[in-house]
Design a binder for these strands. Sequence first.
RNA 1: GCGGCCGUAGUCUAGUCUGGUAGGACGCCGGCCUGCCACGCCGGAGAUCCCGGGUUCGAAUCCCGGCGGCCGCACCA
Length: 515
Amino acid sequence: MQAAKALTLEDLTSFCIRRGFFLPTGRIYGGIRGFYDYGPLGAEMRKEILDDWWYYFVRRRSDVVGIHGAIITHPKTWEASGHVESFFDYLVTCRKCGKDYRADQLLEDLGFRLQTPTLDAISRVIRENDVRCPECGGELSEPQPFNLMFVTYVGPKRGAASEAYLRPETAQLIFTNFKDIYYTMGMKLPFGIAQVGEVFRNEISPRGFLFRLRQFTQMEIEYFVNPKKANECPFFDEVAGMTVQLLTAEQQERGEGEPLRITLAEAWECGYIGSQWHAYWIGESLRWLVRIGLSPHRLRVREHVKGELAHYAVQTFDVEYYFHFMGWKEIEGISNRGDYDLSRHQQFSGKTMAVEDGGELVIPHVIEPSFGLERIILALLTEAYRLEAGRPLLALNPRVAPVKVAVFPIVAKPDFVRKAREIYAMVKEHFTAIYEEKGTIGRRYYDADEMGVPFAVTIDGRTLEDDTVTVRFRDTKEQVRVPVSELVSTLRDLMARWDEVSRRRAAAPASEQSL
RNA sequence: GCGGCCGUAGUCUAGUCUGGUAGGACGCCGGCCUGCCACGCCGGAGAUCCCGGGUUCGAAUCCCGGCGGCCGCACCA
C-alpha cells in the first residue's frame, strides 16, 4: 500500500496540461515563466466564465455598461494613475561579486530612512555614506530602475519619446474614458462601467501555476457613486441578509485568524465595511462566485491591513478562496478607490471629471470589484476535481463546463453510428458537444467525466425502435430515457435546475479525497 | 533574485551513485471483439534522455553555464 497523498497543485497542473486546459507557452522551446496558453478545454471554459460574468454584471443590469479598452494607451495615463511612480523599484548590483539588491530595502536594512526612494535620493545616500555590498564589501553600481510594467515602443523609433507600457490593469481605461461614456450613454449616478481584458505585469517571480502570471485576465467594474450618497444603495436589500465570513483589519492586527460570521447588513452597520455600496458589491460578487460553482464555506472576505493597501485605496477587501494545498488566497479584490483616479486624471489632463448629480457638481467615488479570471478558473478546477475509483472527474457546474454534452452510440455499428451522428448534429446547434464512437461505452463515459461533461447521451437498440435516448448524469451516474424530440429542451431544463439535479452527488469534496 | 530539490516518448516512470548509444505502464494509430459504466485480443508508431559547452575511446549518467518546474525566503498595485 502506498501512503495516501492529498491532491497537490502539481497534480492539478499536470492534469490541466494532460487534458488540454492549459499549456505552458512556447513549451517546445522550454517555456517562459509566468505565461500560459489556454488549450481547447481551457479556451471553452474561459469563454463560458467570461460570458456569464458579462451577462450577470452587465447585460442583466441597467446601471452598468461595458467597454473594451486598448492594451497600449497614452503613457500619461500611467503617470496619472501612480503606476509609473509606484511600479518602479531600484536594483543595485555589487561590482565585485555581482549580487543584486533592492536598493530601498538594502538601505532600510542598514538603518537609512528614505522619505521617498527616488533615484537621486538612493544614489546620494549610497555615495555620501559609502554603502558597500554586505556580502563582500565591494563597490555598488548606480541604482537601476526595475519596472514592473512591460515597456514597448510605439512607431519605428526607439527612445524615451516613443516609450509606452502594456497596461498593468484594465481600470485606467475606464477612468480615462469616464467622461465620454457618461455623455455618450447618457449615464446618471450611480452607474458602473465594466471591462474584461488581458493585463501585463513583469512579476519578479511568477509562481503557483495560474496563481501568479505575467499575463492574466481581469474582469472589472468601476462603479461610480456620489460620495454624499455612499450609503444609499437602492439594491442593498438584495444582499443585506447574506452571511459572510469576514476577517477585518482590526482582527488581523490583533493576531486573530478566525473570521466573523456576520450578515452584510451587520458588517455595514457596525462600520466594518465603510460604505453601503461597498458592502453591496461584496455581496453581489459572492453571489456570482457561488453561481458558477464555488462553495460558500470556502469563500471569505478579508480586509487589507494598513501596510497592504494600494496607493489608491481607501479600503480594500479581498475575496479569498480556500485552496487546500495553499490555504486562503485572493481571487478577487474589491476596493474603495475614493476619488483618487478621477482626481488624478483631472489634474494630469486638465479636464474636469466632475459630473452633475442632484443639482451639484461632484467627482464620483469609485467602488471597484476586480476579478482575476485565471485565479477563479484555478479555484473552480480545485473545487471540481475529485477521484472516483482512482479516476479523475471534474464536477464542474454546467454554466462553466467546457463541454456540456457527449453523444455516444452504444456500439459502433452503422445503424447506431448514423443515428448518433444525426443526434450529435442536432445537439451541437444548442450546446458545446463532443461525439465519440470508439472504445467501450464505460470508457467513453469516464473520458467525458474527466473533461467535466455533465451529460452523456447514448443511442442504443431502443433508439431505433422508439426514438428515445438515455441521458446520463456525470455526478450521480443515474440515467433517464427521453424522446429525441424532447432532448434539447430536457437538457436545457436540467442545466437550469442544476443545483437540484446535482444535490444527490455522493462524492466528498476534493480536500477530503486521497490519491 | 537567493537557498534546497528536480527535468528520460503525449503522460507517469526504471536506469544516474558504480559511464558502454534507453526498459516498462498508461495513452495513441490499425485490425478484431464488444450492447450501459476504464483496465478483452493481435499488430504498430512514438525519445533532440530540457538546452549548450566540457571531461572521456565512449555521457541520460561526471563537471560548468543556461532554461524550465516544485518548496522555502524575499517580493506581491
